[in-house]
Design a protein around this nucleic acid. Sequence first.
DNA 1: TATCCGCTGTGAATTTGATAACAACGTTAT
DNA 2: ATAACGTTGTTATCAAATTCACAGCGGATA
Lengths: 218, 218
Amino acid sequence: MKNKNGNTVPEKNIERLLLYRRILANLRREKKTAVFSHQLALMSDASPAQVRRDFMLIGYFGSPVRGYDIDQLIQSINEFVDAQEVQKVTLVGVGHLGRAILNYFQGRSDKLAITAAFDRNPEKVGRVLHGIHCYPTERIQEIVKAEGIDVAIITVPESEAQDVADRLVQAGIRGILNYAPIKLNLPPEIFVDNRDMLLAVEKIAFFARRRIRKESVS
Amino acid sequence: MKNKNGNTVPEKNIERLLLYRRILANLRREKKTAVFSHQLALMSDASPAQVRRDFMLIGYFGSPVRGYDIDQLIQSINEFVDAQEVQKVTLVGVGHLGRAILNYFQGRSDKLAITAAFDRNPEKVGRVLHGIHCYPTERIQEIVKAEGIDVAIITVPESEAQDVADRLVQAGIRGILNYAPIKLNLPPEIFVDNRDMLLAVEKIAFFARRRIRKESVS
DNA sequence: TATCCGCTGTGAATTTGATAACAACGTTAT
DNA sequence: ATAACGTTGTTATCAAATTCACAGCGGATA
Ligand SMILES: NC(=O)c1ccc[n+]([C@@H]2O[C@H](COP(=O)([O-])OP(=O)(O)OC[C@H]3O[C@@H](n4cnc5c(N)ncnc54)[C@H](O)[C@@H]3O)[C@@H](O)[C@H]2O)c1
Ligand SMILES: NC(=O)c1ccc[n+]([C@@H]2O[C@H](COP(=O)([O-])OP(=O)(O)OC[C@H]3O[C@@H](n4cnc5c(N)ncnc54)[C@H](O)[C@@H]3O)[C@@H](O)[C@H]2O)c1
C-alpha cells in the first residue's frame, strides 16, 4: 500500500486511475491517440488539475503540446495498478445476484478472472454457470489455496455472509467485495468493500429531494 | 441540501447516518435500548468522535450517562433523511441484475418502494416479477409522471443506458442509481451514483496485493 | 459530603484532499 | 526573429474532513 516514494496510496486516487483507464480504453477504440487533461476531466467528473496530479502519482509525463499519449498512459496505469500475472477471483453464492455478476464479469478484464464459484445448494454444485464451475462450499479452503485465488465476491444471504467470509480468510483471501448487507468482522489486513444497494438508493432519494448538484462514482 | 445551519450536507455524512440507522435497527431487534458512541463506532468503522459529530449535524443529543437512546436516535435520523411520504422508485431493465435487485429490495424499506419496472423485451412486458409490474419502455414518461416516481435504477445494457436515462430525466426523475458501466451525460441537478462492479473488484485486487499485514505486538 | 468515573458536545488543531496559479516550454503565427 | 498561445508539472493555497482534547455533567463510590 505504499507507492514509490514510500507513502500510502489513497483509495480515491486508485478509483480515479481505474476510471481514467476505462475512459482511455474507450478513446482508443475511437482511434484517438492523445488526450488533454481537461478532456479527461470532463469525461470523469474530475478537475483538470486533479487529473494531472493523479498522473504525477504514477510518474507518467505528458507533452504540453500533444497532451497524454493514450497507449503509453494506459500502459503506465497498468503497470501501477495491475499485478504481474492474472489475479484470480472467486464468487460465493450463485443466486440471483451471483449469476448476474458472473454474467457481467465474463471477458471484461484480462487481468482479473473468476476461476471458481461456490454454493451450498446441491442443485447448483457441479454445474457450470456462465462458464464458471460451481463447487460445494466445503471445498473453499482446498480450491482457493490450490488456485491461488486472492479476491472474493460474497453474494450469499446476510445470515451466511460472516461464516463464508471466515472460511475465505482462512483459505488465504486478501480482499472481499461484500454484497450482503452486513458488516463483516475480519482481521484488519483484509481489504473489504461493502456494496449495499439499499443504502445507495436511500442516499440518492435524499439528494434527489434536495437537489444537490453532484455526481459520485464507485 | 441545507441543514439547520444553512450549510449543504456532505454526502459522506448521509452515508454514515444511513449506516448508523441500519445498525441501530439491528440493535433494537436485540432488545438493546441505548448505545455509546464508541460502540457504534466499532460497528460502523468510524471513530467515536465522528459518530458524535454526525449526531451534532442532525441535532440529536445523547446523555453522558446512558449514551444515545436507540429509538429516539432512529427517529431523529428518520426525520433528517426521510421524506414525509413514501418515495417511489423505478427500475429499468429487468434482466439478470434487475431481477436480483427487485428480489432484494422487496419489503426492505418502508420509506422507499419500487412501484414499477420497465423493459423493452415483449416477453417481460406485462408480467409481474417479484411483485412489480413490468411496463414497456415507451410508457416511462406516462407512468413516472402519473405515479410521481423520483428515483430510478438503471440496469439496461451499456448501449441503452444513456437513452433510458434521458427518457427518465424527461419524465421528471431526480436521482439515478446507474449500474451500466458508462458515464451518463445529464443535467447537473440530477443526482447520479454509478456502481461499477468491475472497477470495485479492480480496486480490491490492488489493495489486496498491497495491503501490509499488521503485525500484532506481543 | 467529597471524589472519582466515563461519557457527551464541541472548539481547536491536524490531517487529508482539491484547486489555483504560474513558470517552463514546444508550436504557431506574424 | 519573436511574440502569442496552450498545456504540462508542480508548488502554494485553500477547503473539507477528521481527530484531539477537554470542560461539564450526572451518577457511583466511599
Ligand atoms: N448489494 C446489492 O446490490 C444486492 C442486491 C441484491 C442482493 N443483495 C444481497 O446479496 C445476497 C444474495 O442475494 P440473492 O438475491 O442473489 O439471493 P439468492 O437467494 O438468490 O442467492 C443466494 C445464493 O447463496 C447460496 N448460499 C446460501 N448459503 C450459502 C453458503 N453458506 N455458502 C454458499 N452458498 C450459499 C444459495 O444457495 C443461493 O444460491 C443477499 O445477501 C442479498 O441481501 C445485494
Ligand atoms: N455494476 C454491476 O455490479 C453490474 C453487474 C452486472 C451487470 N451490470 C450491468 O447492468 C446492466 C444489465 O446487466 P444484466 O446482466 O442484467 O443484463 P441482461 O441482458 O440480463 O438484462 C438487460 C435487460 O435490459 C432490457 N433492455 C435492453 N434495452 C432496453 C431498453 N432500451 N429499455 C428497457 N429495457 C431494455 C433487456 O430486455 C434485458 O431484460 C448491464 O449494463 C451490465 O453491464 C452491472
